[in-house]
Each structure stands twice: as structure tokens, then as C-alpha cells.
Design a protein around this nucleic acid. Sequence first.
DNA 1: CTGTGTTACTATCATTTTGATACGAAGTCA
DNA 2: TGACTTCGTATCAAAATGATAGTAACACAG
Lengths: 143, 143
Amino acid sequence: MKNVAEATCPIARSVAFVGDAWSLLILRDASLGLTRFDDFRKSLGIAPTMLTRRLATLTEEGLLEKRRYSERPPRDEYLLTGAGRDFLPVLFMIGDWGRKHRGKGKLTRFVDAETGEEIQPIAVDTATGARIGTRPIRVVAAE
Amino acid sequence: MKNVAEATCPIARSVAFVGDAWSLLILRDASLGLTRFDDFRKSLGIAPTMLTRRLATLTEEGLLEKRRYSERPPRDEYLLTGAGRDFLPVLFMIGDWGRKHRGKGKLTRFVDAETGEEIQPIAVDTATGARIGTRPIRVVAAE
DNA sequence: CTGTGTTACTATCATTTTGATACGAAGTCA
DNA sequence: TGACTTCGTATCAAAATGATAGTAACACAG
């Protein structure tokens, strides 16, 4: 995948780091409150080698933060950083796509904790107020 | 990665198909108007074997559609389907994250074709009107 | 203290995926 | 005829993945 991280396209920049399935699922679980190695492992059914690597890169890349929650025995947990929390909208849009286009059968639902209503995400351009994808786009190369 | 596609989580369902870097970048290019094998290959610097495979799965999964645009010589192009176009909000949120958190140096900008203004995407819950991530979420298992 | 359990890993290694390079097929164009 | 274009396939080395087993460092019950 080489030098995609140095592309001028912001999508490519992101994809270089979070463009793999396990990272996305780890971020999902972290967003839903999981913090510990074994919690992630059980939730995902991931091999521990993979999980170690993914947690390490997500930590290096500043999406997760490793914090010692017990000195004896030494135990660490992984917490979302600001950058990690900022990823939540991406996950919700991915989930929304999945519900629409891969939504056969029973699905987990994400609801607002206060109202109890299912969250219905849309992406909007704050500049025009229009929904993303409803107006033509132009690409402007880095100046 | 096994049976993630059968998970009850809509995010996992999506991730099973589009949770890899090349697919995301192909969808980006397709969203920006590319349609042909060689266009994708040159834009991405991807090995042709990879590109063939990715285009095939994206087509099987209903995100792209193969269409013959010339009979002699036989030439095919790949067009976004409805499901593929519905993926655009995901790409924009990914791009927005990249701009915020991986945005050092010059970046390509995406602007509204009419106003010329840079698109500033946000994800909002239509139910509450609040920005995604600003209110606590609860997960409800598939019933 | 001994044995069992918990948490967070590392080691090993077969299998799978990737990616680079070369080549092919089916034409066009000069 | 020969060069060029477009859309791939063939081959194969290198890298990533994933299953399984083992380790380290402790707690806690008896």
C-alpha cells in the first residue's frame, strides 16, 4: 500500500491508517465502551497476535491511548483519544450504509440514550445545508 | 475475517465488504468520475491483479456495475450503482477525519460545483438533530 | 504454599493475500 | 506492417493473516 499516507487526498490519508477491517471494528468496540484486550478479543474473535498489532498501530497513530489501570498486577487498558472519538461519525455512516444495503435479518440498533429512538445519521454539507451526494462536486488539486 | 458479514451489527456487515483500503480508494475514484480499468490503475498505482479482483468483488457486491461501452474493440467500464453512490457520505466523513487529523501539508479540496465553496461535512442524527457523537449512545441487541 | 483462574500478551508456523513484472488478446490508427 | 491502446491474465516471491500453544505476573481459595 506504500505511500498512500503521503497523498494529497484527505481520504487517502485516512485510509492508509484505518483502511482495514479489524481497525474499524476495534474502533467501533472502543466507541461502545470496550477498553481491555480480552474484551476486544472476545467481542471480535480476533487472533491475539492481530489484536496486539492493531492496538499498537492505533495507539501509535493517536486514535487510542494506553493507560495502566492496575500496577499490581500490571494491567493496561485502551481508551479512545480525541482523534479516536472523532472517528465515530465515520462508523455511523458505515453502519447506516450497512443497514440500507446489507440489512437482511435482525440487526443491532444504536439508539439515543435519552430519547431511546434509533439514531438516523445523515451527512450534510454545512456550507450549503444540502445532503452529501445530492449536489455535484468538483475536485480542486492541492495548490 | 470469516463470518463478520453475518454479524448483527450493521457496521460489521459493511466492513466485511468495504473494509479494505483499495476498495475505498476505488469507490472514491469512481465517485469522482473514473470508470475505466486503466484510469483506476494509473490513479491508484495498484497492481492489475489487485484491481481486477477488487473491481470484480465490488461488482459482485453491487457497488459497481460493469457496462460495455464499445463492442469493437470490446471495452468495459465500471459505473457506480445506487448502493455505490450511497457510499459517498462515508467517503466524505473519512476525508473530513483525514483533514482534521492527518492534514499536514497541501491537501486536495472537494468543493461544491455551484458555489465553489469547500464542502464541510458533518454527520447529524435526524431524530434529535444533534451532531453524531455529542450525545450518549446505547446499543440494543437484535430482538 | 499449591493449585486454579485471570489478564495480557508473545512464539511459531501453515495458509492466504499482496504486489511486481511479464505477457496476451483484441482491436485501432498511420 | 508495426506501433499503440485498453483490459486484462500468469507467474511467483514477499508479506500479512490467523490458529494454536505457551508465557508472565499476579490473585485468591483451600
